[in-house]
Write a protein that binds this DNA or RNA. Structure first.
Lengths: 261, 261
DNA sequence: CAGTGGTCTAGACCACCGT
DNA sequence: CGGTGGTCTAGACCACTGG
């Protein structure tokens, strides 16, 4: 069998073992779309052609394309071809907004900033315990942040983590990074799942003040539990969105049991 | 090669050709989960066992499992097994809420009702035209409905469709069905994609009146464009949610280019 | 009609988990 | 260690689309 540790196309490393080939293919195609090698509305090379170009099987290419299609980046038409979808797509999907604040704000063309309001270790409340599947009087680590766009505060966010996920002391934690990186750096976990609840609410005084809002202006409240691949809860996130321009967007493939993606 | 048009397990028809096998498997497993054959937290039979039981290849079973995992119904653990996730999951995901009102309300344990406020054919507004990718002065069909739960109005929804999708006259349309069935019946299209924007807003007078709300109570506003598999816009939906109990929920697999689902 | 994506199969090897 | 899911391959046939 051919050993394919890596090979180059032109002067560029393309495929290597180690990380799943399908993922690499997806990333590669994603890059090409972002960079405009494949432009919106354009038809991609056929699956067979891609398979040949990258020296992988067609099944692997399909796997990658499925990922992109699920994310809404491409559209596949049987008997015709695969097209780049002309939409921003998944970049600002609902959940990313919650745990990748900064990227979301950057996408709206503004400069993100994070201010840590508080960082504490305390016993879990009943609500915490239920959401994070904790039993008894376990400890949690709670971080409250204010996120700003162009120095204008737009989000108030509180994240509660099971303390058992952390090996470091409180004063060794740098909370001025966003949720995703925070989890990666200190818990070595990756968010894979999310359960979110969205509602409209009137801001209470503290939120009002933090976001410099008029008290009669409704804002979005997002409550979410994020889990890792095993379904273990990593964080209970409560976020208030106080910016007109922060409309949430959700692009996704519907329907349930269609493997046909 | 074995011809497998259909076969039975006990007295029950299980697999037939025509509809993709993987989908049938997914549906079957979904049913079993819903019916409690497989209960939350329980480990499913191994992929190989399922493949053998249903007389399909392991790849096909994996396809089905991937669909369920994407929807958040199961969790797969390498080297261990596949487990039923204990969460309601995808049934009331964000988008379903918008185009399957009745199911959503039923899931909350109440009786759904649909009242048609207006049904008209008119020229597209600029906003319609942009959202539905119409050019010029094309016609649209606009339906305004009030959805109730236990006779209590909870949603005001306006759906604008390109008139070109319809072959029937206005007076031949029955709008007392929800969006999904409406599109199936009269346009013979299936919703596959959605672009949604969510925001918090104060209800205007008409919405207030329709939902019997106090004017100082914030509500959710969801604006969505739904498309078919080709990415063609089918409907621009504008919905106001005026019920405390109607919190939106979103469960989904994150991360982008992981084919590893 | 040729070419595309859609589906399925059979078999292989791997990484990982629990025992 | 055996069994599980994770990945990849090669090849087959189908359904659909466009020219």
């Amino acid at each position: 069998k051919v050993e394919r540790l890596s090979f180059t196309n032109g002067d560029r490393m393309l495929i290597e073992r180690q990380v799943p080939i399908a993922d690499q293919v997806a990333n590669l195609l994603h890059e090409r779309i972002v960079e405009g090698v494949y432009t919106p509305g354009e038809r991609l090379p056929s699956e067979s052609d891609l398979a040949e170009e990258l020296a992988v099987s067609r099944g692997t290419v399909r796997c990658a394309l499925t990922a992109l299609a699920t994310a809404g980046l491409i559209v596949r038409k049987q008997g015709d071809g695969t097209y780049v979808r002309d939409a921003k797509g998944s970049e600002n999907s609902l959940m990313h907004v919650v745990w990748e604040f900064t990227r979301f704000i950057e996408l709206s063309g503004r400069a993100p900033g994070i201010q840590v309001v508080s960082l504490e270790r305390r016993p879990a409340t009943d609500q915490d315990a239920q959401a994070l599947e904790l039993s008894g009087e376990e400890l949690v680590i709670s971080v409250k942040r204010i996120i700003s766009a162009d120095d204008q505060p737009v989000i108030v966010s509180t994240n509660v983590h099971p303390a058992s996920l952390f090996s470091k002391d409180l004063d060794q934690l740098d909370a001025t990074i966003e949720l995703r990186r925070f989890l990666e750096r200190y818990c070595h976990r990756e968010v894979v799942f999310g359960d979110m609840h969205i509602s409209a609410t009137m801001p209470d005084d503290s939120v009002c003040q933090a976001l410099s809002l008029a008290p009669d202006r409704p804002i979005l409240l997002v409550e979410a539990v994020f889990c890792d691949g095993d379904g273990s809860p990593l964080v209970l996130a409560t976020s208030y969105y106080g910016d007109d321009k922060l409309s949430l967007q959700d692009v996704r493939r519907l329907y349930p049991w269609s493997s046909n993606v």
